[in-house]
């Protein structure tokens, strides 16, 4: 597509902010999905997300996010002693958290497939 003005200015979400917008929509579910495997403490959540690429930019934002998910009942917490150092707060998935992960998973695959299909077909052209 030819753009007389810079393309990013005509999109609803500017392209440079797109990754941030996408990240915001999925980060909570990614954290819940990680906790599905085993209870984790904040540092471990950050470490795993860091290893997955550009999912998390400001690592510190995980803590308010975990706190919120705890307030909203999606995760439960417990303190555990560590061999060296202070106790750590571990987060594990609650029943409603498990449901949220399952719902998101279904929704995500449907959404992703639709977008993949549109891009594979060259923007919907037959």
């Amino acid at each position: 597509m030819q753009c007389k003005v810079p393309c990013s200015t005509v999109l609803l979400v500017p392209i440079d902010g797109l990754a941030t917008q996408l990240r915001k929509g999925v980060i909570e579910y990614c954290v819940l999905a990680l906790l599905k495997e085993a209870p984790l403490y904040g540092g471990e959540v950050i470490e795993i997300l860091r290893s997955k690429g550009q999912i998390l930019i400001s690592e510190g934002t995980i803590y308010p996010l975990l706190s919120r998910m705890r307030s909203e009942g999606f995760v439960e917490t417990e303190w555990r002693d560590t061999p060296a150092g202070a106790p750590r707060r571990y987060y594990r998935l609650s029943r409603s958290g498990q449901k949220a992960v399952a719902d998101f998973r279904d929704e995500w695959f449907r959404f992703r497939n639709s977008v993949d299909e549109i891009f594979r077909d060259g923007g919907g052209q037959r």
Binding site: G42, G43, I46, G60, Y63, L66, S67, G85, A86, R88, R89
Partner: peptide, 8 residues
């Protein structure tokens, strides 16, 4: 939590 994270 962030203080603990930094200490860890």
């Amino acid at each position: 939590e962030i203080r603990r994270h930094i200490a860890g």
